[in-house]
Amino acid sequence: MTAITALLFIPFILILVIFIILRKLSKNTKKFWTPKRIIIVIAGYITLGFLAFLYFAFFYESKLTVLANSEIKQLESELKSLQRYDQEYNSSYLTKDYIKNTWEFKFEGDSLPVSIQERGNGLNFDIRLRYNDDIEKGKAVISYYQFPVIIDGLNMADQIPLPIVYMTQEQLFIEPPLENKVSYNRIKASLGIVDFNREVDLEPSISLFHYSSVLLIDVARNTELEDLQGRVTYIR
């Protein structure tokens, strides 16, 4: 009851106090705010705004840059060929440029059981197996390849979280990553309501596209991989 009374009366008291103060000050402010002084304030305000603009134009360093439509289209056409390689079980598209992380594990014996844990939305990457002559027996090298993820003209590949990969009791566990929440502020010196209506007809691929990332397991040629969930695909 006291709280409700306070909530009702406090704004009234505040308004009353402001009103009394303004009434007392009005005579003085009228004398003070001559047209000349108001013009100075307006000019000062516009100058401050201009200085703020100069700061953003010349001194502000943005961590992310928006790709031009031509750059995005070029990237998209390059990445389209990846799907073709993958369908042909050809690992040549998995180049060093796309490697985001590598894990190395040692195990005993000729077989490596792989357990894939799916939770939530499931796995958001493909798992591939490649027999590699350069790798010694009893060793597994796991590489995570992340391809560009274009969202609203930005490449967000660096923000995609890594999968959880670990080995316990001679068994390899692969788990999907925890969700990464990222928020950014965007400066658009334009009218959002106009842009929104105009952008509806744009090609959706320009603003949003991604290709499935790949977790590649490299093992020695005679190693037997026990795929417990049947999710691993062999690749040359």
Binding site: F125, I151, N180, V182, R186, S213
Partner: peptide, 8 residues
């Protein structure tokens, strides 16, 4: 997208 929750 891909375990990424992005907000602008």
């Amino acid at each position: 997208q891909q375990n990424l929750d992005l907000n602008f």
